[in-house]
């Protein structure tokens, strides 16, 4: 993805935008390429530090094992849930065609 000189290319940004289903204008791609390059520069600064012996951080909070008991709690009312959907049918969410027929 990177070749040392340019940490991120326009093509990388377009690829990531496609994965995230974002429709970006040319100007936005331009701006985000610069913004993401700055973020990656910062990551490179961190990566340059001597971090031997520092365990990776999975989470910023010093917490472990936040667990709940396996006890049933009331679910939502279905009519209320489906009222929030653009379209519902037969007690279910109705969604547009998933794949192109091609």
């Amino acid at each position: 993805m990177t070749d040392g000189s340019a940490p991120i290319t326009r093509a990388d940004v377009e690829h990531v935008a496609r994965l995230a289903r974002l429709a970006l204008t040319d100007a936005e791609v331009e701006r985000l390429t610069a913004d993401l390059a700055a973020v990656l520069d910062h990551a490179a600064d961190v990566a340059a530090l001597d971090l031997d012996g520092v365990p990776p951080t999975a989470h910023p909070l010093p917490l472990r094992n936040v667990l709940r008991d396996d006890a049933v709690r009331p679910s939502l009312d279905r009519d209320e849930v489906l009222a929030a959907a653009p379209v519902a049918e037969d007690g279910r969410f109705r969604v547009p065609r998933i794949l192109d027929p091609s």
Partner: peptide, 26 residues
């Protein structure tokens, strides 16, 4: 289990559609 992985909705087969849903699993 009695409930889902991350919420208290019942883990139960065969219920009417969308009756075991809550803000977490939605």
């Amino acid at each position: 289990t009695a409930t889902k992985l991350f919420c208290g909705c019942p883990n139960e087969f065969g219920a009417a559609p969308n009756t075991h849903v809550c803000p977490v699993c939605l």
